[in-house]
Each structure stands twice: as structure tokens, then as C-alpha cells.
Simulated scan of single mutants.
Amino acid sequence: MTGGPTEDLLRAQAPQVLGALVRRYGHFDACEDAVQEALLAAAVQWPEQGVPENPRGWLITVASRRLTDQLRSEESRRRREEAAAAAEPRVPAHVSQQDDTLMLLFLCCHPALTPPSQIALTLRAVGGLTTAQIASAFLVPETTMAQRISRAKQRIKAAGGGFDVGVERIGAVLHVLYLIFNEGYTATSGADLRRGELTGEAIRLAREVLRLLPDDGEVVGLLALMLLTDARSRARTGPDGGLVPLAEQDRSRWDRRSIQEGVALITAALARAPLGPYQLQAAIAALHAEAERAEDTDWRQIAELYRLLDAFAPGPMVTLNRAVAVGMADGPKAGLDLLATLDGDERLASHHRLDAVRAHLLEMAGDSAAAREAYLTAARRTTSTPERRYLESRAARM
């Protein structure tokens, strides 16, 4: 499905139909196959015959019929046929209008799955991306990604996966969407800095979660963070595809509509909802977005927000970003002192960002020789071509 009213409608309905079938019948794999057949039938029939009055009901009915036919044809048809016969598909007029998108997201984020498997299954089942598209985004062979998705479905089945809407599962859903967005915004490897299909899908799914959980401050915060961050996309690369750092970006190229929406969202959330990590990150992104020039950035307030974030969700990457803010607010030595607390952290032992931040602070401190070595070390450790070229160019300037 590449575009057009019918394709857009089918894409929006697909996760809801799949969620309804899985909720009713189980058999994740079989339900997904049946939904794909129903979508194909709709793509052929609707442009000629018109969109039915109840598109979701039509798709659920057709998919249910395909599913029951499939269950009856299997060798263990007697037991499954009895279950299917007890739940014959209803006519579209009686199909529940409940939106199962969130339920399907929760199922894909089953705690029995690893984060990579949660991401892959979410993109496949909820995002509607093909296995080939997901494999391409993560730079692995299609067969590898197909096996990962298949194993994820089997693991959910073995764990007796159901639609558990617990607090811990909400956190997993948001974390998976956050990881999908980050991989799209700054690809961890490959020739391209950004993969727009992943950032776009993460934002779309975050909007769906917000539509279903409008009072959750962290859902609001995550969507605001995505919008405010993605608003800078056009300015992050030069004509040659090279990385342009935040301080050097042409801010007139930032997407002001996304910034306005993001600022409005986070402002409202901070006023009414309990504070959380995604809201704090969105507040930091808003301060960057509202500075008309790099030199107007309120680094002291950003450093304070990172201090709060470090208390809410401590971790090496938070400390790393906080070191940058502290270095900008209180001088490079203060930043380097904070950065030194990460030297023994095995989670960052070979991560290029630790060396890149050290290089930046050393450059600010006027230690060109040490900065050059740190930039070159960071360049050797990154697997992203645009980042490597940028780091090498910084080293060359020393």
C-alpha cells in the first residue's frame, strides 16, 4: 500500500482488525494471514464497488471467514473447528467498534520478548511495514528479520500472551516507540543519517496511543519529544548528506508547525500531569526549539532539567547529555569532571558518543591535541557513515 484514500484507510484499519481477531480467536500468525487476505480483497473490490458503510466491520467479517476456513482445514480441525463454530463471524452491522490498536501494541510489547523483537513485531503488526522494509531499516537480511518476527510470535504464544494492560506494559509500549523513533532519527549504522519511515511511523503510533490515553502525561511527553526533535530533521544534513550539528543548523529550516504543536503539548502536560522522564526530555527539546539562535539557548535551565532527569531515570546516556549541558552552562572543566564519572561504566566502554562528547569539551577547553585524538577515536567506533565523516572533519580542524 503506497498511497491514496483507499490505501490510507486500509492502513489505519489494519491494526484494529488484527487486534479484534487476535482478541477473539488467538492464533496470532493465522489472524495476521487472514487480515492480509481481507486487506487484499478490499484493495481490489473497494475502488470498483465503493467503500462499505462500515469498513472495519467488512474487514473483520472477511478476515474471520478466511480464518475459520483456515482453521477447519488443518489436521487438528475437530478441536479448532468447534472453537471456530462457537464464534461464527457476525455481519458488519454488529461488529464492535472498539479500537484494538492499543491492545495490539501491548501484545507486541509482551515482556517475554526482547526489545529488538518488540520493535520488529510492532512495526510489522501495528505499523503495517513489510518484513522487507523492517529488515532494510535495520540493515539485516530479510530472512533474518522474518525469523525474528516468527520467533517473537511463537514466544508470545508459548507465554500465553494476552492483552494485559498493566502499568509496566504501558512503559514498554512507550519505550519501544522511543527506540523506533531514535533509530529513525539517528540510524546506528549505514550510509544515511535518518530513516524517515521509522520516525514517521513512531510519531503516527504515538498519536494513536495518545488518542486512546489522552490523560497520560508521559504519552503526551513522548509525542511532544518526537515532534520537537523531528522538527530539526531538514537542517541536520548538508547538501552532501553530511551531519550538521545543532549549533550550526539553519534554524529557519526547522518545522515551525511541529515545534508549535510540541511546545503546546508539553506545556499542557507539565501543568497538569505528574512529572516523568519523557516530559523532562520534551521540555529540554522545547528549550532548544524556542532559541532563535544557538547562542540564545538557556543552557543553565537545560542543565537543571538534566539533573532532574538523572534523578528520575538515571543512566549513562542521561549523564553524558548532562555533561554537555553543564559544560555549556558552567564551562568545559565542569563538563569534563562530570564526564569522568562515566569512564568506568562498561555500558559506554566502546560507545563513540563518550569520546565525541569528551572531544567537544576538550575543544572548548582549548586542548586541541587531546580533542583531535578523542574525535578520531569516536570516528573509529561509530558505525554511522555520516557521523564518522563529521567526526573526522572535526579532528582535521584541530
Rank of each mutant, 00 (worst) to 15 (best):
D230F: 06
L139Q: 09
A187R: 14
V209N: 03
R232C: 07
D230T: 11
R204M: 05
D215N: 09
M145P: 08
A231D: 11
E218T: 07
D240M: 02
G238P: 06
L213T: 11
I180P: 04
R211G: 03
V173T: 00
R151P: 00
V220F: 00
D164I: 10
G221Q: 06
T144S: 15
D216M: 13
F138W: 14
R207I: 05
G160I: 07
V165M: 10
L213W: 12
E201I: 07
G200A: 04
R211Q: 09
S150G: 15
R204N: 00
L174S: 06
T237W: 03
R207D: 09
R151S: 14
E183W: 04
G161R: 12
R148F: 05
A235Y: 01
S136I: 02
P214Q: 08
R236T: 10
G166Y: 00
L213E: 14
V176C: 09
R207P: 06
G166N: 09
A202S: 12
L225S: 13
T237Y: 09
G184S: 10
L212Q: 15
I180V: 15
Y178G: 00
L223Y: 07
D215F: 00
S150R: 07
S136G: 10
K157N: 08
T237M: 15
I170R: 13
L139N: 11
A191C: 01
P214T: 01
D240I: 01
A146S: 12
E197G: 13
E197I: 08
R155M: 08
L177N: 05
F163D: 05
L205M: 11
I149F: 01
A191N: 04
L225P: 11
S150L: 15
D216Y: 07
I156E: 02
P141T: 02
L227H: 03
A135H: 09
R211C: 03
A146P: 01
L223M: 12
G166P: 10
Y185N: 14
E208V: 09
S189V: 05
A158F: 11
L193H: 08
R207W: 05
P141C: 06
E197P: 00
R236F: 07
G161W: 03
R194L: 13
L225K: 15
L213F: 06
R234A: 15
R169C: 01
A187W: 06
P239F: 04
